[in-house]
Simulated scan of single mutants.
Amino acid sequence: MKKILKKVLVILLLIPFFSFSQTAEELDFVAPFSDGVAAIKKANSWGFINDKGAIVINFRNDLVLTQFGDSNYPIFKNNRCLISEKKDGITYFGYIDKTGETVITPKFLNASNFKNNEAIALELIKNELGENEILGKNIVYYRYFNVTIDSDGNIKNYLNPKGVNIVLDKKYLRKPPKITSKKIYDNIYAVLNENKKWTIVTTNN
């Protein structure tokens, strides 16, 4: 009996020195590493592995793909990865961190990957004009704005203060509106206006 107890004790002492990891097998695609992790695909789902080869974000269907040459895959930048969620047939965009937790709730009509802790997104604003007495309903309209956000989702700058009117209905909004702004230098952005001409906007970052 004492010999058995000794063997059990030795095994228990050795367990902490052995490591167990989840193995990623039968993958359909493996992306290059970015921000310390690499995207992996199985069937129609994507996950992420770390630099030890262990799966750190399990396979899921809400990760947004970015095009790189002939390939499309999700990517982390500044510890943020784009996700999407459909509400009433409309697609909204947000972000997760490397634990897989949602850190910016999907609420933007479109959004870019982060770069230098900043991203460009389309902020949706709802405006109420008043009540229609005949129908007994509030009259509302929607506009969206090109904005810059920080890694917590806080809006830093409005790049097109006039905004763009939009019909928030899945019949008319079958795909996300395009982001029409781009950063060209530290605090300088180029914004495409309704006349398809570029306007230079300087912010006070």
Rank of each mutant, 00 (worst) to 15 (best):
V56S: 08
K196E: 15
W46L: 06
K41F: 06
E131F: 11
I4N: 14
N78T: 03
M1L: 13
A39M: 07
I49N: 03
N193A: 03
N146V: 05
N116A: 10
N116E: 11
I55S: 02
I188A: 11
L27S: 07
L5E: 15
I55P: 00
S19V: 12
L5D: 14
K197P: 02
S45A: 14
N165V: 08
K156C: 10
W198K: 07
F18L: 09
K175Q: 11
P161K: 04
N127M: 14
I49D: 04
A190T: 15
V37G: 00
I57S: 04
K196I: 10
F33M: 01
I96H: 00
K126P: 09
G136I: 08
F29K: 11
L109I: 03
N110L: 00
F48D: 03
K162P: 06
K86P: 06
V164W: 12
V191Q: 07
A31R: 04
G100K: 03
S181G: 05
P177K: 01
I155D: 08
L129G: 11
P106L: 04
S19R: 10
A121V: 08
Y141V: 06
P74T: 05
L192Y: 00
I139F: 05
R80L: 07
V140L: 08
V103E: 01
I11A: 14
